[in-house]
Design a binder for these strands. Sequence first.
DNA 1: CTGTTAGCGCTTTCAT
DNA 2: ATGAAAGCGCTAACAG
Lengths: 374, 374
Amino acid sequence: MTETRTAAPGDAADDPSAPPATPASRTERAAAVTLSDVARAAGVSLATASRAVNGSARKVRPDLHDRVLAAAASLGYSANGPAQAMARGRTSVVGLVVHDIADPYFSTMAAGVVRAAEERGLVVTIGTTGRDPVKEAQHVAALRGQRASAVVVVGSRTGEAPVQARLAEEVAAFEAAGGRAVLVSQESIPVDTVVLQNERGAGDLARALVGLGHRRFAVLAGPPGLLTARDRLAGFRAGASAAGAQVQDELVVHGDFTRDGGHAAMLSLLDAGFARGCVFAVNDVMAVGAMAALRERGVDLPGAVAVAGFDDISTLRDVTPALTTVRLPLQGIGEQAVHLLLQERAASPRTVHVDGEVVLRASTPDLTTGRPSS
Amino acid sequence: MTETRTAAPGDAADDPSAPPATPASRTERAAAVTLSDVARAAGVSLATASRAVNGSARKVRPDLHDRVLAAAASLGYSANGPAQAMARGRTSVVGLVVHDIADPYFSTMAAGVVRAAEERGLVVTIGTTGRDPVKEAQHVAALRGQRASAVVVVGSRTGEAPVQARLAEEVAAFEAAGGRAVLVSQESIPVDTVVLQNERGAGDLARALVGLGHRRFAVLAGPPGLLTARDRLAGFRAGASAAGAQVQDELVVHGDFTRDGGHAAMLSLLDAGFARGCVFAVNDVMAVGAMAALRERGVDLPGAVAVAGFDDISTLRDVTPALTTVRLPLQGIGEQAVHLLLQERAASPRTVHVDGEVVLRASTPDLTTGRPSS
DNA sequence: CTGTTAGCGCTTTCAT
DNA sequence: ATGAAAGCGCTAACAG
């Protein structure tokens, strides 16, 4: 990045510890107008002002109500959030924890969460883990300290017992403190969860592909530890078997859940002699990496090697050949999570199941007719 | 979305007004352990406990310090954020305001902001405007109420005077209340700004394309009101002229800053008889839409029509033909914004300029050699 | 329906 | 260096 700055060439030293580095605060600040100021200006009591301005179950006489609102407006009053939170014992913050907000899978879900939350006057904070499951628990703990009223943790569990236990513990503590928690992924710990039917979606996809005449399958399976990747692989296998085809073990290659992971996995598959068949990448991003690898190697795509993904990332809908995939309503999933949060916690954890929908496109030709599907 | 739920078929009614719908709170909640509890357990005063646990300029005798920390740990103490914020008069929240968090342009910047902020113990909240510039000001106002310590507003200004004034006003109020504000885009109102050199980048691109032998240019120009779109168009025009080529007015088509906007704009260009030349879409997302349109119409891409974009969205790096574009260090821009926030406010607004870098790829062939560039 | 008042949990002078 | 005490701004009993 080329850059020029008008001043201060030295960046503040980074000491990622102790007291949060509050951004440089201005020296002289205007004393904020408080509710007392408004009350005085309107000639009413603090309590009345509070009831009028910040909503309450109790009613205020219309003329007073208007008088207070007018005073508030003319003074430029804006309620002190922390003070309200303190008095109420809880903020109106929803904490969202994702692996990487730059990843379209997460950012699309985030958009859903934000949309649903903003509609209800809730503020969304975002924490990222960089795929480190331990950080999930840390974020939940921090959110408990912030008195967030709810938390949404998105992202595949690893199934690792200690990590899982730690998250379960923090989530329990969060709920014990009066907050609401929702997980998005798989049913792994006892808390309200939006369960993505990865296994079923992958199974449907496999069956559809067999229906198109594909018989020889390879899978770019993602990280071995990730439950989401594992479920998609398992579902695909099961679906293929059910339809009379098989996924040979040698044709299952693991790799990162990223574009580069898919690229590398595809290359290793090609190096191992795979030259014809249908490749299922457990997510779209990997599928695109695989396509790039095929192109680099001059493999006929989709003639010799067909490719399918999972997620139906919208930014990727214009790749060529168009990618066959399993559509997940990502934004809707984020919204679902918020709906779940808004409901009272039930005696036993609630679950919302979300299905994927197979979308056949040109990357997996219909072998029975010889024409691209769709 | 197919879904099954174990309970509560009816979603909570949506009344986007009055008191923020705090997510359903649990009935009985564990009383949180407070600093007083810790102090008592450690046998010290509240003040000492505060100094030991939550950091302070003042020193605490080592043994007491340890005693307090041990007590805090064993009790599972976690500081009450709102209470701290109230006492200190300020939270450690950085508010991020973007148009659409699902758009990779914004989500990548957001990733940079979050990364830099988390390193410093700052929490990032996210607000979205859905491209409504009025909502930007509203979010800034809300953040002032939340006593956020800083705000980052990302997104093109429209240059509309009243809207601009409103934002300027809110930003001023925010700063007057002691917060730090940074804008990302163009220098439009007097506040610290990360300025993206759209004009220069587009100019560089135009010159590079002329260098490849392109002479006939069309521009998919985005919404007429958006400064970013306008600057990119202006820069491209200027660059082309400087290199001896021209962009005819009839070949400048406006459209949404989205994939569909690019798609529609390209179609109208084709319908108007454009059949050969180089199309500059003012962002990558539009460029991809344009490519899809060309493909649908069976136009030889990049043989008859070459395409270039702007931004270098990473998810789009694998489209075919590979897209020529101007790379913006999006994540770095987000980090820059945070760096700026961390610095004390200067007497006159500070500015950081960020340049784009032309990346020539296969979508704009080198006409001088007949081979694809790069 | 309005007003008075007691905190919410923490930081921070101000003594000691 | 530690402790006691005064708020920060607002809400929610509790009276009137």
